[in-house]
Amino acid sequence: MKNGGKVWSWFWMILGIVYFFLPLVATFIFSLRAKKGVLSFLAYQQLFNDSGFIKGFSYSILWGVLTIIVGILIFVPTAYWVRLRAPQFRTAVEFITLLPFVIPAIVFVFGLVRTFSHPPFLIVDSPVLLIAGYTVLSMPYMYRSIDTGLRSIDVRTLTEAAQSLGAGWATILFQIILPNIRVAILSGAFLSFAIVMGEYILAQYLAKPAFAPFLAYLIQEKAYEPAAATIISFALTWACMGIINLFGRGQQTQIAGGH
């Protein structure tokens, strides 16, 4: 490449880095301003002493983990079955897993709330709807990760070998297939976790005390604590993505919704 081109490369790169880091640096500095005139971690202290924060954070962590478990329970057998025995369903299944891309989160939640807040399906207050909603929102990423993982192992041979040794379906799935796609599942799991932690719309309109609605509340009611919470939220996202990169080893990082 000509040297003139290199200057431009550096220019765009630096611009990108500045654009990326400036809001984060600003938020961090803002979060240190809780005590007048001095830089301190007072905002973080106040945040951690806020029972609403603990409650929201732990609520989202709990439901994130539950969503991952439900996702694994539903999608691993399905992906396995489609790959092994039911390839004719592949198009239909992939279409369904891509539907959350076409249906924006707000429309999806709108449909969920409107459908399930009238009898006879009055489950709008139950945790079932929350988990189901989170699972659907993370479905594209979870399913695709699992599918990619299955693609990289020889499902047919493993299954045949296990069956020839007399294993039943449950054993095959959970003791043979699952450990072999561990990496892919973890990648999907962390992405789902990041989605659930940052998910606002479903939690808000189902009136659940999750982390994101709490953050929205903080922004209105407090001056500096929302900055501390934002930094924590960002650190968490970074950790999740970092772990995915660690396990994924170069698999293309995927983009999450919930914005």
Binding site: P23, L24, A26, T27, A194, G198, Y200, A212, L215, A216, I219, P226, A227, A229, T230, S233, F234, T237, C240, M241, I255, A256, G258, H259
Partner: peptide
């Protein structure tokens, strides 16, 4: 690309 939504708005 994952850091969107409320935390981004506040940032």
């Amino acid at each position: 690309s994952n850091f969107a939504g409320i935390p981004l708005a506040f940032a």
